[in-house]
Write a protein that binds this DNA or RNA. Sequence first.
DNA 1: CTGTTAGCGCTTTCAT
DNA 2: ATGAAAGCGCTAACAG
Lengths: 343, 343
Amino acid sequence: MRVTLRDIAARAGVTKATVSYAMAGKPNVSEEMRARIVEIARELGYQPNVTARALSVGRAPTLALMVENIANPFYPEFALEVERAARERGHFLLICNTDADPEIGRHYLRRIAGQLSEGIVAMAGHLRIDDVVAVNQSGVPVVVCMWEEPEAAPPAPCVTVDFAHAAAVAAGHLLALGHRRIGVLVDGDEHELHHQRRLEGFLRTACEAGVIIDPRHIVRAPDTIAGGTDSARALLTAAPSLSAIFATNDLLALGALRAAHEMRIPIPGQLSVIGITDIRAASESYPALTTVAVQTREVATYAIDLLLGLIDGSIPADPPPLLVIPSPPELKVRESTAPPAKP
Amino acid sequence: MRVTLRDIAARAGVTKATVSYAMAGKPNVSEEMRARIVEIARELGYQPNVTARALSVGRAPTLALMVENIANPFYPEFALEVERAARERGHFLLICNTDADPEIGRHYLRRIAGQLSEGIVAMAGHLRIDDVVAVNQSGVPVVVCMWEEPEAAPPAPCVTVDFAHAAAVAAGHLLALGHRRIGVLVDGDEHELHHQRRLEGFLRTACEAGVIIDPRHIVRAPDTIAGGTDSARALLTAAPSLSAIFATNDLLALGALRAAHEMRIPIPGQLSVIGITDIRAASESYPALTTVAVQTREVATYAIDLLLGLIDGSIPADPPPLLVIPSPPELKVRESTAPPAKP
DNA sequence: CTGTTAGCGCTTTCAT
DNA sequence: ATGAAAGCGCTAACAG
């Protein structure tokens, strides 16, 4: 059976309390006693029961991250940053994948909030916001990352970046190169466009530069490389004269790259492609993808700090704070963009 | 404060026990009582404390997965399968990323084993095997996936695939196409070759076909696309006459694809490339990568079943079972392989 | 310094 | 059908 404090106590001829003190390194225990206890614990192969401790103390040094689709490379890359930030602050990080199913999301939320961890960082989008709000009210803070709604007053604590700005930077780059006939790939399947703000930011910048994007050149796609490939293929077939494609994220842009390859369209010679995010694959593609880097590391760090602040009460939960990373999104010029070909 | 059973009990004028019964759906409670209790619980926003429950019942419906590098796309893809399998069996899955650091791995192992979850599935390679053995002995089963050691008697429960066979299949494909001058990219940095078995399987098959691989054409690389690109570039520069490259996994193969692009080497016209695993990116690359699919879904499913069997005692832990997925690895012929160019 | 005691929130006999 | 009480393993006053 499992070794508990009691077993050690019995062997050492003391009480559980003393053993507890000794193991916790409390000062009120003689050195010899501590040595003996530690030795016995080692012999017996004692493993503290974190569940019992958590129940007793009322908290566990554990944080959780909820992602909707761990197979989308953005999430693992972000998770890495969150994990690092949590660890640097002495916390464990448990990662939960909801498969983009709000029901599963709610279950995890409940389970985690039931004392499994002290706080949660959730990626926006796959959880019902009222589930998030409910958990927040139940006393376990949840901070939402990459919130894309334009509202000034979010329903839950958020940390995000200015996606409209990122899109504007992308637009600026394309426009500066001289592109005028630009197609757009935007994430969002049948019913909703997820990357609305990015689209708006792009269109506004283009418009201000006097460039109007033909609505027929704005196509939506499921958020995968294959989705990007399919949509880009359709777009390029219908509108072969486009000189550039802006995608609201790198996965779609990478898909566009593949479509161009298939169609033997030279990049960047005949077609420029730009994305947003700067996932790792963006620099590993051929040609390497020009993109606008989103500050995932900053978001991760701030999210953890915010969460910890919410947990220890040093940051008030009401009204829910909204933090937009101040540093501007950074343009990464690589190999997939160039001036348009002279006809 | 947090709503507990007691609060509900007080409001309903009954005891905690009755509330507990009611919430658990036990039959020994009148319908009206149950209805009232459930209603009150809802009103009060009751969230059961899973920690307390876990402590009380001595187990939690939670499993954990430990991966070494969540940024390597193989792991998230595998995690997805494990998560699915666990969920189908009514368990939660917590994912932990160890950053390939055995120290961090040990910490997670300890913490998880301390009743955070009932069992653990760990990817081979990043944990010290004696830590794994220790946890196993402490009563929390750990099953190791993708074990690549040739030993017949593993130190811990394992489920894996026949990597040597997979490599042989890859070799067979290349040989059947007529390739004779083949370069090899093998995962493993300075000190050790991780994919030893795959390499052996490949070399043996080649040898049996009378094809000897020049040792100078076997290069090791860190397990990333960039690593594959660098190594392939060096290889192809030193040995331009190679007609094919075998990589011990897809990431390296994808890197080789990129190197070939950079060097303007047509694929598969002048160079064929094949990998192992069939990660998602393999079918999304350009050209799409020919590879040998490893049965990740089967491994995930068997791992969970084995783990659950170990937990409920229906499968003996001693000697540690070793399960090699019986179905053969499957060749996925895509666009990156073709017969060698006639000189 | 060490022991006693109570309690974290829930489950689960055993009574009633 | 409901209540009383013990206990999961640990921590944290409070005593001694």
